[in-house]
């Protein structure tokens, strides 16, 4: 079976730097951090981390109310990032058959903020009459993918990957596979996530959050730093427009890059701890699929969330496969750990 080549033709992002890829790149170039103290988290008993990288919502009212009413913040981020990716790719949606374009947008668990609102209401009074009609659509695991598809009028595959921090990469990998197989021509792939004290709180309970920099938030997180003390949560959305090479060339699109290999795997070793061996295996399989060897790699964008154990295991896995000659960095120091996004 002849497989399609898959290319990236558009990019979009909503991050703590603002709406758009340009402000993200500028922020990274300037070495800026968007992490700040979360005053509103002080009321949570036992929550040791008090820092995060929040997004300032912008222009959400450009989305008509009837489309917006089913969107929590993460879906709004996903819609805005998707629109950017479509515009950047120069895609005219009217020219693509609706069933040949879809979206795959992952997150850890749907809208943390809306889930909390719902359960606070129900748990307190055992009363469901205060739950609005659109809460379900805001909460569900596939809320970002569903809302983006609804808003943009996409009639193809609508999938939500949910594998915690691997969600958005799995979305891109799944999109790559579907386009390779010829099942879709264009897919908007990525992730979306939103902040909530309970989300950071789950990591806090595992002693995986940064707690020593609450009074100087700009100094955390510190991926691969010897003074790192844990992750800092962020939020937002990042979307890539994936397209078959043939489709992109036929419409004269600019091409950022080609995806040539992908792998995802479990470790079956420990429910929360990183496993060096499975990381090496995963990277090796992706290289094999691409027909490349470690010496062909010029740059690695690592997960590197700033946790003591995770960064160590990841650094060891990279060193085992690539030696010490490949530059490695992580985005977490700028925009925090955006989890599924």
């Amino acid at each position: 079976m002849r497989l399609n080549r898959v290319v990236i033709t558009g990019i979009g992002a909503v991050t703590s730097f603002g709406n758009g890829v340009e402000c993200l790149i500028q922020g990274i170039r300037k070495g800026r951090s968007t992490v700040r103290h979360m005053d509103e988290w002080e009321e949570y008993i036992g929550l040791r981390t008090q820092v995060a990288a929040p997004v300032e919502m912008r222009n959400e009212k450009k989305i008509p109310r009837k489309k917006r009413r089913s969107m929590s913040p993460m879906s709004i981020y996903a819609v805005q990032a998707s629109e950017q990716a479509i515009a950047d790719a120069g895609i005219n949606l009217a020219e693509i058959p609706a069933d040949r374009i879809g979206c795959i947008i992952g997150s850890t668990m749907g809208s943390g903020q809306t889930l909390n609102t719902v359960f606070e209401n129900i748990a307190q009074n055992k009363d469901i009459t205060q739950i609005s009609a659109t809460m379900f659509f805001k909460c569900v695991s596939h809320t970002a993918a569903m809302n983006a598809a609804q808003y943009l009028g996409l009639g193809g595959y609508v999938i939500a990957t949910a594998a915690a921090c691997a969600s958005s990469l799995q979305a891109v990998g799944t999109g790559y596979d579907l386009i390779r197989l010829g099942k879709q021509d264009v897919l908007l792939c990525g992730g979306a996530e939103e902040l909530h004290a309970t989300v950071s709180g789950t990591f806090d309970r595992l002693y995986a959050t940064s707690v020593r920099y609450n009074q100087n938030p700009q100094d955390t997180p510190r991926p691969f730093d010897s003074a790192r003390d844990g992750l800092v949560c962020g939020e937002g959305s990042g979307i890539l427009a994936l397209e078959s090479y043939q489709h992109a060339v036929a419409r004269g699109a600019k091409i950022y890059a080609e995806i040539t290999g992908y792998n995802t795997c479990g470790n079956a070793v420990h429910i929360s701890q990183s496993d060096r061996r499975s990381m090496v295996y995963c990277m090796q399989r992706a290289l094999n699929e691409a027909g490349k060897s470690p010496k062909d790699v010029d740059y690695i964008n690592a997960h590197a969330t700033g946790t003591v154990q995770g960064d160590k295991a990841e650094a060891e896995a990279i060193r085992e496969l690539f030696g010490n000659g490949v530059p490695v960095s992580s985005l977490k120091g700028y925009i925090g750990h955006t989890l599924g996004a």
Binding site: K66, R69, T129, Q130, I131, S132, A133, T134
Partner: peptide, 22 residues
């Protein structure tokens, strides 16, 4: 006013909350 069936459920919720009634 452009409301639909989903909005009516939300209207009832909003009226209950604003007027403190069931």
């Amino acid at each position: 006013l452009g409301l639909d069936s989903l909005d009516i459920i939300d209207l009832v919720v909003a009226l209950q909350q604003n007027f403190k009634i069931k």
